[in-house]
């Protein structure tokens, strides 16, 4: 697939097919915020295997993928469900040594991706100096001497993920992707620039003229986008500020049920495997009209 100025709009299934087993994927997300979860559900249904997932903050979507057996390795700084507590499947898989965990500080993993984005062999950081995090992965982070001051700095090896997956507010069919209030998040910024392929799901498809009227909101230009999917509420149960809040009830249910593998399986059967499409998912939640209840921010 090329990233020319042409129609990039595809189905979720077609988008998922661009992710191959064994790929390194950079996945947008936070504990409860902004994550391409409609696509994650599709990747799980498609039975992806051996993925190496790079994130800053891993949350519910990553925990599902780990539970579903999609993930061989995670590269992240923290994986939790924020106020809802531990990501239980991540915890179980790591404790059972079924998951490789490559832990970084935030600035280290961003520096790796930043170097990847610029085509440099490595970038430098001071973050984590003196900590045990550095010694975890000598083939990607190493303390070196600054050639000018002689002081210790950390060389962070370039990371170029095979594919970045993101959820955004809107785009035109060419893949000019817009964020509101504006693109401020690290993973919206450096993930797509570092990745070889970029897949974006969006709440809304708008005309090219609308993008041209509001270019200040554009965070990813069309030439960097390979596939685009229209998925309203595609971050659910995470939030997409300022459009909708996270779904407290679903989070609490998952936090409770994921305490056991059986509970997790039942949750995934109901919310992922038992539904064939994103439309069915929305229908299960009562349709987009019912989801308006998530538009309150108080």
């Amino acid at each position: 697939m090329t990233a020319r100025k042409e129609d990039k709009l595809v189905s979720l299934q077609q988008a998922a097919a661009l992710v191959r087993d064994g790929d390194t994927i950079a996945m947008q997300g936070m504990g409860t915020q902004m994550s391409p979860l409609a696509l994650v559900r599709e990747l799980i249904r498609a039975g992806k295997r051996d993925l190496q997932v790079a994130m800053v903050v891993g949350g519910i979507g990553l925990d599902w993928m780990i539970a579903a057996g999609c993930v061989r390795k995670v590269m992240a700084i923290i994986i939790n469900l924020d106020e809802f507590g531990m990501a239980n499947n991540f915890r179980r898989a790591a404790e059972a040594q079924k998951l490789e965990v490559e832990e970084y500080t935030e600035h280290q993993i961003l520096t790796r991706l930043g170097a990847g984005a610029m085509g440099l062999p490595f970038g430098v950081s001071r973050s984590g100096l003196g900590s045990d995090v550095i010694g975890l992965h000598p083939d990607t982070t190493k303390v070196i001497e600054c050639p000018f001051t002689g002081k210790p700095v950390i060389a962070c090896r370039a990371l170029e993920p095979d594919v970045a997956i993101l959820h955004a507010h809107r785009a035109d069919r060419f893949g000019n992707v817009q964020f509101f209030p504006k693109p401020i998040w690290t993973d919206v910024d450096v993930f797509p620039r570092a990745a070889k392929k970029v897949i974006v799901t969006v709440e809304e498809i708008v005309e090219n003229e609308e993008i041209r009227r509001t270019p200040i909101h554009t965070g990813i230009p069309y030439f960097k986008v390979d596939a685009l999917v229209h998925a309203p509420y595609g971050a659910h149960p995470c939030s997409l500020f300022p459009k909708y809040n996270f779904d407290r009830a679903v989070f609490q249910r998952y936090a409770d049920e994921s305490r056991t593998p059986e509970g997790t399986r039942a949750f995934l059967d109901e919310f992922v495997y038992g539904l064939k499409t994103h439309d069915q998912y929305l229908a299960k939640l009562g349709g987009t009209a019912a989801l308006k209840r998530l538009e309150s921010w108080d």
Binding site: I77, I79, A87, R91, E106, R126, G128, L129
Partner: peptide, 18 residues
């Protein structure tokens, strides 16, 4: 081979050294 796998170093990994 963790006895307990905790969430991860997050911002504290950065801030301690910065």
């Amino acid at each position: 081979k963790p006895k307990v796998r905790l969430p991860g170093s997050a911002g504290m990994g950065d801030m301690g050294s910065l």
